[in-house]
Amino acid sequence: MSDVLLIIEDNEQNLYLMTFLLEKNGFAIIGARSGFDGIQSALHHKPRAILLDIQLPEMDGYAVMAELKRHRELDGVPIIAVTSYAMVGDRDRILAGGATGYIEKPINPDTFAEEIRRYF
């Protein structure tokens, strides 16, 4: 059975892009367009890893990470921030906020799946 990944991303194009690319690389994908839906899906499906955009409407990525961390049953599920915040300190802030990994947008389509697997 293939590994299930949860992608929390509000931008439709980006969600489609990552879904397509990762499905072709052998993953099963669950998509969520908001932080709230993402948390519900995470609790329901217990994915292998969670890919998380930081700029989300209403509940941003930091709030999502904080909420996910409250659930013991998700301990050990890596949260990988996939974000276009690339200013000084963004990376440190995101890792301090609870992310296991950090991938900067634009993603590299040639190596993206491999980068995700590295966090397993």
Partner: peptide, 19 residues
Amino acid sequence: SHELRTPLNSIIGFSGILL
């Protein structure tokens, strides 16, 4: 920085998928 990266993500990503 944020605004420019979002469309570039699509261009680089989808061209990569096609390639």
